[in-house]
């Protein structure tokens, strides 16, 4: 949408940073966005420290552990995050409401397995807000569900020997009562 044109970000000052994913796609993002990814920021800081004169040249930052698909989603999320923050700079409560609304909408377009990719990418990029948000999303999806449901959700197989699982279930019997229907 008209994100960029409507909310000029004062910190960006049209400085662009180029990111290259593991599947060789190149993303050009505003500095403000890239700086939310602590891994990128760290890389950037190190580069600057090593080579002070290269300030103006465009650095290409390789992200060998991130694929283009989750990165694209993370960039969108990050932009929106910054925008909401800028729009409600003086009202924290409003900001939280807007953010919650956006996050709810955001999740409508995300599949469980994508969520894991996103968590992996956010974790690698060290993008804390997104990581927290995705962890919360996973938690809320498996809250009060049966073990079978959670296994299916994660695509997990039980690797217990026969009898082991039963023993555990007996030991923690109180936590298995009254779960939601799958």
């Amino acid at each position: 949408m008209s994100n960029q044109s409507e909310s000029p970000n004062p910190t960006s000052s049209s400085n662009k940073i180029t990111l290259k994913t593991s599947d060789n796609e190149v993303f050009e993002v505003e500095e403000a966005v890239a700086m939310k990814f602590c891994t990128v920021k760290q890389y950037f800081d190190d580069e600057n420290n090593n080579n002070v004169t290269s300030g103006t040249s465009t650095t290409l930052i390789p992200l060998p552990n991130v694929e283009s698909h989750p990165l694209a989603i993370l960039i969108t999320y990050c932009k929106k995050h910054l925008e909401i923050k800028a729009n409600n700079a003086d009202n924290k409560k409003e900001m939280e409401i807007d953010m919650e609304h956006y996050e709810r909408e955001f999740l409508k377009n995300v599949m469980p397995q994508e969520l894991t990719e996103l968590i992996l990418a956010a974790n690698y990029l060290n993008f804390k807000e997104a990581l927290d948000f995705f962890c919360r999303a996973v938690a809320s999806a498996i809250q009060n569900k049966s073990v079978e449901y959670v296994r299916k959700f994660f695509g997990l197989e039980s690797d217990f020997k026969p009898g082991e699982e039963e023993k555990l279930r007996e030991e923690f019997a109180w936590s298995f009562e009254g779960v939601d229907e799958d």
Binding site: A139, I142, V150, R151, L156, D159, W174, S175, F176
Partner: peptide, 11 residues
Amino acid sequence: RDAVKTRVLSH
């Protein structure tokens, strides 16, 4: 309770 329950997912 849910956190404890995840112990039964896998090793």
